[in-house]
């Protein structure tokens, strides 16, 4: 993964010069391997091993309710999944949710970050409040918003003037998705804004001041100075949130359980495996879900990489 370069590890200014003595470097190597062995093994045990097993099981027609009937069927499960309208519909819904939520979060989160950057009073209070949505259990957030949008016990209908008090948000796809995305955006915007705030702090005030002196408008300063200088922060924030949003599951489970075409690709996989006990096709979906996350990551990295290169040239 080329993205590791976005991690801090790529340069280490405080690193002492390497000891010339190769014994020492060998012992360092040995110590390091000892230190990372256990964590690495654990990470692989819970991910790589089950993933390989999923790869294997995906080649079978295998249902837990009829374990004796397990038969090898090659790639048929993948063919079934990839030619099924449901798979593509759920992928589309997932991508839609991802794009909409991340866009909202980026804009609102940036606005919040600007405010927090400027503010000089009550910083502790703001920091505390902004961490609360971040810390709240997603399931709790899902419930809070589900009940808020409920037409029998909620308040949203009475607060929104253009909405009928009897309007049932969970009766159709569009409005259900609005409710789901509201919960998702509410909970994760704070995280986004904190990452962006950290990025904002790295933009030098002098440059902004200089642009101001040159007569640049607020808008120009934002576009020409601030945003280009925090591209790295934005990329990390977007990448992480996008991948998180692509895996959306909790809110959908709690709020609609996938009714009215609000099912995400994660939810589809969960249903095959855990509700229907279809380990064969469920494993095939697991593999496809994993691959699609890699694709999403690659696309985002690619998009931003081009931008970064341009910025460097310019």
């Amino acid at each position: 993964m080329t993205t590791t370069e976005a991690r801090p590890t790529s340069h280490k200014p405080s690193k002492p010069p390497k000891a010339p003595d190769s014994d020492r470097s060998r012992s360092e190597n040995r110590l390091a391997l000892k230190l990372v062995a256990l964590p690495l093994a654990l990470m692989l045990l819970v991910t790589a091993f089950p993933m390989l097993r999923a790869l294997y099981l995906s080649l079978f027609d295998y249902s837990l309710t009829a374990p004796d009937d397990r038969t090898f069927i090659g790639l048929s499960n993948y063919v079934t999944a990839l030619t099924d309208g449901l798979f593509w519909r759920d992928t589309l819904i997932t991508v839609f949710i991802m794009v909409v939520t991340v866009s909202f979060e980026l804009v609102i989160g940036f606005a919040f970050a600007m405010v927090m950057h400027k503010v000089i009073f009550a910083r502790g209070v703001i920091r505390t409040s902004i961490l609360i949505p971040y810390g709240v259990i997603t399931v709790v957030s899902g419930f809070a918003w589900q009940f808020a949008f409920s037409n029998t016990n909620g308040f949203v209908n009475s607060w929104l003037p253009f909405i009928d008090t009897d309007f049932n948000w969970f009766a159709e796809q569009g409005s259900s998705l609005v409710a789901i995305m509201a919960s998702e955006i509410w909970k994760t915007t704070p995280f986004m804004s904190l990452l962006l705030l950290a990025g904002l702090a790295q933009v030098s005030e002098d440059m902004i001041e200089a642009a101001k002196v040159d007569g640049a408008t607020w808008f120009q300063r934002l576009y020409k100075v601030i945003l280009p200088n925090m591209r790295a922060a934005i990329m990390v924030a977007v990448l992480f949130r996008a991948l998180d949003a692509y895996r959306i599951f909790d809110n959908i489970f709690v709020m609609t359980a996938g009714a009215n075409n609000t099912e995400s690709i994660s939810f589809l996989t969960y249903r095959q495996v855990i509700e229907q006990f279809q380990l064969g096709i469920g494993s095939a979906l697991s593999v496809l879900l994993f691959l699609s996350v890699l694709v999403v990551a690659a696309v985002i990295v690619k998009l931003f990489r081009v931008d970064l290169a341009d910025a460097r040239q310019g």
Partner: peptide, 11 residues
Amino acid sequence: QPDFTTSNEGT
């Protein structure tokens, strides 16, 4: 009923 599409035994 208003919650027709999400109605259950209790609603």
